[in-house]
Simulated assay, not measured.
Amino acid sequence: MVASAVPVSSASATTADMPTVVDQVAVARLYGEPLFSLPQNLYIPPDALEVFLEAFEGPLDLLLYLIRRQNFNILDIPMAGLTRQYMLYVDEIRQRNLELAAEYLLMAAMLIEIKSRMLLPPKPVAQGQEAEDPRAELVRRLLEYEQIKLAAANLNAIPQFGRDFVVAQAYIERSLQPRFADVSVQELQEAWAAILQRARLVQHHRITREELSVREHMSQVLKRLQGHRFVEFEDLFNPDKGAPVLVVTFIALLELAKETLIEITQAEAFAPIYVRLAYTPT
C-alpha cells in the first residue's frame, strides 16, 4: 500500500526571507544552543516547506475522494470532470515522485480509455438488452474498495489494547497468613491414583521357602492307606495345598514303593492306578 499526499502549496525559502532576530528570540536552536541569525549561504530545498493536506492510499482511494467531494453519483460518474481533476493530481505528483506516479498513471490511462469509449457510438445489441456501460468495471471496483475501506475504519474504531486503553493494575497487600486453594473430590482421586501407580513401580517381591519333610508325608500316606484295601492314586494328592506339597507327596510314594511298603497296581493300560499296603497288619 503506497501512501501519497496532495501538495497544495510550496515555497522556496531563502535567507533573505528569514528574520535575523524576532523580539530577541532565537529563530532556531543548533545542538541546544540558540541561533539568532541564519548562516550565510544556507540552502533550503524548494519542496522543504510544502504543506500536505490530504493523503491517499492509491488510485482508487483518490477517485473515491474526488467522487465523494463533488457529490457525484457513483453509478453515473461524469467521466470528463473526474478525469480532469484526476489528471491535475497526477501531474502534480509526477513532477516530484515519478516512481509513485506510475500506479496513478495506469489508472489515468484507464480513465481516458473509458472516456474515449463513451464518446464512441454504442455497440449494437439484441432487442430488449441494454448496451454495456464502459464505466461498469470501474464502478464495481470503487464500490468494493469503499466497502473494504469502511470495514477497515470500523475495525480501527474498536478500542485496542495498548492504543486506546491499558489494563489497570493495583497492588493489594494481603494478610501474611497463607490461603490455600480448595481441592475438589476429583483432584483427590487423581492424586491417590498417582500415588498407587508410583507404589506399584517400587513393590518388593519376597520369596520364602517352605520346608517339607518327605518322611512326614510317607507317614501320612501310610495312614491314608490303612483300613482300605485299595486307594486310587489320584486320591492321595490334594491340589489345594499347592505344587510343592504335591511334589513331596509323589516323592514319598516313590520312597514307599522303593522300600516295598506299598504296591502300585494297574489292571490294564490306561486303567486307573491303585495303591495298597504291601503287608497286612496283624
Rank of each mutant, 00 (worst) to 15 (best):
P178R: 04
P178T: 03
P178H: 03
P178A: 00
R179W: 03
R179F: 07
R179H: 10
R179L: 09
R179A: 03
R179K: 13
F180W: 06
F180R: 12
F180C: 03
F180G: 06
F180A: 08
F180T: 06
A181P: 09
A181L: 10
D182N: 04
D182F: 05
D182V: 09
D182Y: 07
V183F: 01
V183D: 00
V183W: 04
V183K: 11
V183H: 05
S184C: 03
S184D: 08
S184Q: 04
S184L: 07
V185P: 10
V185L: 14
V185C: 02
Q186R: 14
Q186S: 11
Q186E: 15
Q186Y: 02
E187A: 08
E187P: 06
E187K: 06
L188C: 03
Q189M: 08
Q189S: 07
Q189Y: 00
Q189P: 02
Q189E: 14
E190H: 08
E190M: 05
E190I: 01
E190P: 05
A191I: 01
A191R: 09
A191E: 07
W192S: 12
A193R: 10
A194W: 07
A194R: 07
A194H: 02
A194E: 11
I195S: 06
I195C: 09
I195P: 06
I195R: 08
I195Q: 10
I195A: 11
L196H: 10
L196S: 01
L196D: 13
Q197W: 01
Q197K: 10
Q197N: 13
Q197R: 13
Q197S: 14
Q197M: 11
Q197F: 01
Q197T: 05
R198I: 02
R198E: 15
R198P: 05
R198H: 03
R198G: 12
R198N: 06
R198A: 15
A199D: 12
A199H: 07
A199N: 10
A199T: 09
A199F: 04
R200T: 04
R200E: 15
R200Q: 15
R200Y: 07
R200K: 14
R200W: 02
L201Q: 15
L201C: 04
L201M: 14
V202A: 13
V202Y: 01
V202G: 05
Q203N: 08
Q203W: 04
Q203Y: 02
Q203T: 01
Q203G: 00
Q203A: 09
H204V: 14
H204F: 12
H204S: 11
H205I: 08
H205A: 11
H205K: 13
H205Q: 12
R206A: 01
R206V: 11
I207E: 08
I207N: 03
I207C: 00
I207R: 11
